[in-house]
Amino acid sequence: MFDSSMILPAFVVLTVLCGMHARIDVYGAFVRGAKEGLATLLQMLPYLCAMLTATALLRETGVLLRMETWLAPVLSALGLPGEIAPVALLRPLSGSAALAAVRDVLKTMGADSRAGRIACVISGASETVFFTGALYLGAAGLKRSGYAIPVAMIAYAVGMLAAGWMISP
């Protein structure tokens, strides 16, 4: 029987074997990579400060709750829990805001709840559509995005449905 707790250890073993096979300094490479990971996290911190402040404000003042009550019927019609509404709304707009929203769901509903797991899957399986679009189009000097954004948003919705379907109640 497949056990999901095997994934990470197996990944570690595979990585170490790759390093040994390539005859590199695995320890040194790990430390350099870890340094990079921490640098990424530090880079994220100011953005998270801004976004966690904004989401905390929206949560405490009841705005998030209202968003949920508007979106919940739509989500539950699609088989998704209403608590993930903030995640579903914020994910295409901002990575750090979505991260803050997922953290909120994990905190209020529990890390192993269905809503918490679905929030993680949706967030992990999608990208900040609008930011990425602006970045890539800007790099190519393009003003028009053609059908890219509607297609990406439909794909995002399809991913959400898949998440709800896979993580059964």
Binding site: F11, A22, D25, A29, F30, L45
Partner: peptide, 25 residues
């Protein structure tokens, strides 16, 4: 935000390390 980042720092460094090994291999 600060305590959230700290609580994730260990796991982040760990994944960064694994990716570093993969890249250098």
């Amino acid at each position: 935000a600060v305590s959230f980042c700290l609580s994730m720092a260990g796991a982040y460094a760990f994944f960064g390390g694994l990716l570093g090994v993969l890249r250098e291999s």
